[in-house]
Write a protein that binds this DNA or RNA. Structure first.
Length: 502
RNA sequence: GCCCGGUUCGUCUAUCGGCUAGGACAGCCCCCUUUCACGGGGCAAAGACGGGUUCGAUUCCCGUACCGGGUACCA
């Protein structure tokens, strides 16, 4: 039973990839890489009505941003191509027919409208062992009638046993069992010839030699259908091990986290910006909001898993090493944006500034600031990174290094402003203009000495000085700022504010 | 309704029968910093409920409650 580990992420291209989806990919990826196995992405586009253009490309862009590279996929290729179920359409019918032949499935001719009215008439109607004798299918029709009906549209349904216990061991939940009496005769092959998820997932997992199948908890109720299909198709010994991942819940109240919760509560739910081609509406993503992929991956990994120690910061490589399905929590987790922010802040500080220098530069350019000297940018980033939670915070925190502030909060200075302070700064300008040294420590020393000779406390002068240079009450050490922007600009900004105060 | 799953501080979680129930985020207080942060120190905060099993239950079993998921020719 030591087969090669092969896992798959099987999204349907119906929209942006949200938190829960990315976490499912991540757990798949971590497990595969740790076991030296293969990580496969298979596109489950069996529902032609729900197809959304651009959604597939978006999924791969997201994976690329997160650094989760598939070994096999429709874009990366692989020995089991094609990896799009719509392109594998011809595969499925034979298996459905085989099931019918062996008595595990049957043809059903009831139209969607008939089913709809049935459901309207009979509360909780289920197409099952209890009701199928009253419906129109190959079990109730003669062979000749069936053959005739087959000329028109029909579906193939699984014939669930009347009362059988189906059990399996879930890697996260342990022993889980179902009574087949409760589950209905799911459609396996649709009237358009496409398989439903139920058939397609089993057939493709088998054909692609998937060893472990990880998916969201919402799939647990249909697990008995899948288990039985593996058995009926005669593939039982090749069945993958299952793990049903806990859901990610909305932060307030209860329920699965949805895109709407993000809009409502002001945080991203999708990994990257997603524009719905039908409505042209854009939903903001973690990336555009200013998250580092390192942080995004890290926070997702910890939403439902931990390594058993107090450590919380992990690189992808560390996660690959430490991840284990056994340590995945069973219960759903409410998403906490505050904690997400903390992760990002930590990663902005932890990672070399070089990792996001270009992105910050781009953000600055969007705000009309062009960077001439990369070395200066890097120095500045190093200086302010501790105060940035999002990449976008760098704009406010660094602009004044490259551009004279367009507004000066002189109101913060005025109340305590007087002629002695005015004189101090005038003298400061004179002194610095003569100065040949321009290191932060030199500036601080001169500043304080001059304050002393004027019988002023340096503290009273620091805030005004900061506002002259920065425009407001924020930013790193003032002398560091002065050192970087240079003598000319420093003097210029002091003079400018002095004029404002006059 | 029925089926399945879940239930430890506000939130994410640790604990694999011995607990003064640990950590992190958020909150509050103090220190550092005459900006904003970072950092350091501290405070407050939890085992849904009821039965068993056991010398001992947060941990095992049963029931109840609550929450979630599913109940489509969607995935």
């Amino acid at each position: 039973m030591n087969k090669r580990v092969r896992v798959r992420f099987a999204p349907s291209p119906t929209g942006g990839l949200h938190l829960g989806g990315v976490r499912t990919v991540l757990y798949n990826y971590l497990f595969a890489k740790q076991q030296g196995g293969d990580f496969i992405v298979r596109i489950e586009d069996t529902d032609q009505n729900r197809f959304v253009p651009g959604a597939e490309a978006y999924i791969f862009d997201t994976l690329a941003w997160c650094g989760l590279v598939p070994d096999e996929s429709p874009v990366h290729g692989g020995p089991f191509a094609p990896y799009r179920q719509s392109e594998r359409k011809e595969n499925y019918r034979q298996y459905a027919e085989q099931l019918v032949k062996n008595g595990f499935a049957y043809y059903a001719f009831d139209t969607p409208e008939e089913l709809e009215t049935k459901r309207a008439q009979v509360p909780n109607f289920q197409y099952s062992h209890a009701t199928r004798s009253g419906m129109c299918n190959s079990l109730t029709l003669s062979e000749a009638e069936t053959a005739d009906k087959r000329k028109g549209p029909y579906v193939i349904r699984i014939k669930m046993p009347e009362s059988e216990t189906v059990r399996f061991t879930d890697m996260i939940r342990g022993e889980v069992s179902f009574n087949t009496a409760q589950v209905d005769d799911k459609v396996l092959l649709k009237a358009d010839g496409m398989p439903t998820y139920h058939l397609a997932v089993v057939v493709d997992d088998y054909l692609m030699k998937i060893s472990h199948a990880f998916r969201g908890e919402e799939w647990l109720p249909s697990a008995p259908v899948h288990l039985l299909l593996w058995k009926y198709l005669g593939w039982e010994t090749d069945m993958p091990q299952w793990a049903h991942l806990p859901l990610i819940l909305k932060p307030d109240g209860n329920g699965k986290l949805s895109k709407r919760d993000g809009d409502r509560l002001g945080f991203p739910v999708f990994a990257m910006d997603w524009t719905d081609p039908r409505t042209n509406e854009t939903t903001v993503g973690f990336r555009e909001r200013g998250f580092l992929p390192e942080a995004f991956v890290n926070l997702l990994a910890l939403l439902g898993w931990n390594d058993g120690t107090d450590s919380e910061l992990f690189t992808l490589e560390e996660l690959v090493q430490k991840f284990s399905m056994e340590r995945v929590h069973r219960a759903g987790a409410k998403f906490d944006f505050e904690k997400a922010k903390w992760f990002n802040h930590e990663w902005i500080r932890k990672v070399p500034v070089d990792h996001y220098r270009q992105q910050v530069q781009l953000l600055l350019e969007q705000n009309g600031i062009t960077i001439q000297d990369q070395a200066v940018l890097e120095k500045v980033l190093q200086l302010v990174k501790d105060r940035c939670t999002f990449l976008t915070d760098f704009v406010q925190q660094t602009s004044f290094f490259f551009r004279t502030p367009d507004s000066i909060d002189s109101a913060a200075i005025k109340p305590k402003w007087d002629s002695t302070k005015n004189l101090f700064f005038t003298e400061l300008i004179r002194a610095w203009q003569l100065s040949t040294l321009w290191e932060a420590t030199d500036l601080e020393k001169e500043f304080k000495e001059l304050a002393a000779t004027n019988q002023l406390k340096p503290g009273e002068l620091m805030l005004p000085f900061r506002i002259m240079l920065v425009g407001g009450k924020f930013g790193p050490g003032v002398f560091d700022i002065a050192a970087i922007i240079g003598k000319e600009e420093t003097v210029h900004r002091i003079q400018h504010t002095l004029k404002l105060l006059a």
